[in-house]
């Protein structure tokens, strides 16, 4: 099983763990992540305005590369996933955006959203299967109580992301069970931590991340997992809690004995 892979800028610097453990685990599970050549930063935030074209181009370039490889495109960072998947949806459903982007790029074959964008978790669930993952686990994380933090970007807008039930998701909990740990039930798992404004409005980011961390701790978590470098930074830095926040891939690698 081979996938095109878009790591994104943060995974090459501050978020290396997210990437490294994902690659090691992929190898252990028997699928290959082929990093796209010359990928560019996705922009880290989806431009909602219908008259924004330039800010969507880098995502489209990644999508086109995957199409030309004839592969599905796998992402890992929640922000990259959100941006690329939403832009892909624009290319498939918004004729005006698609026309203007294609006019600008001047591709041999115009792009109209043909690439399938998968988050790494979706690969685990839909291509590998959590039962197979469970069977591959050599070091089950028994007794660990893990809070799955979805945040916003993997789930919403749900009509476009189609990642899971946006209000009652289970994919991360199923993942936690597959690696032998116990998921914690808590309500703030799909509420925003305020990551985007962590640089310019630290007070607001602190307030939001406190709320999230408190809820997880109160419900008995010993560890929180996320797929988002921005959430991880904000929650760990501003969350005001001792609860460790790690990338889900780190626990995956640990359970597969490849950490």
């Amino acid at each position: 099983m081979k996938f095109s892979y878009f790591p994104g800028c943060t995974l090459k610097t501050k978020g290396k763990d997210l990437d490294i453990f994902a690659r090691k685990s992929a190898e252990a599970l028997g699928f290959a992540l082929c990093e796209l050549a010359d990928w560019q930063c996705c922009g880290a935030v989806y431009p909602m305005a219908k008259d924004e074209i330039a800010t969507k181009l880098s995502s489209v370039r990644a999508l086109v590369s995957a199409r030309d490889e004839g592969q599905e495109l796998v992402t890992l960072c929640s922000a990259c996933h959100n941006v690329i998947k939403q832009v892909n949806n624009d290319m498939a459903t918004d004729a005006d955006i698609a026309l203007r982007v294609n006019n600008y790029l001047g591709l041999d074959t115009p792009y109209n959203g043909e690439t399938t964008v998968l988050h790494y978790l979706e690969v685990l669930r839909d291509r590998i299967g959590f039962d197979k993952l469970k069977a591959a686990v050599t070091n089950p994380l028994k007794g660990r109580k893990i809070a799955a933090y979805y945040g916003c970007l993997l789930l919403r807008p749900s009509k476009i992301m189609q990642f899971d039930d946006a209000e009652n998701p289970t994919i991360l909990e199923d993942f936690i069970r597959a690696i032998g740990a116990e998921p914690v039930s808590w309500g703030m798992r799909n509420e925003c931590c305020g990551g985007y404004i962590a640089a310019e409005d630290k007070a607001q980011a602190t307030k939001r991340s406190n709320t999230v961390m408190e809820d997880a701790a109160k419900n008995g978590a010993d560890t929180m997992i996320t797929a988002c470098p921005l959430c991880l930074y904000n929650l760990a830095k501003n969350g005001g809690s001792d609860l460790p926040v790690v990338y889900f891939t780190e626990l995956l690698a640990e359970a597969l004995g490849v950490k």
């Binding site: 039930s185 808590w186 309500g187 703030m188 509420e191 809820d215 109160k218 419900n219």
Partner: peptide, 11 residues
């Protein structure tokens, strides 16, 4: 907008 479980209470 949102209901969460907060120990024995609902928030």
């Amino acid at each position: 907008g949102k209901v969460t479980q907060n120990g024995g209470q609902l928030h």
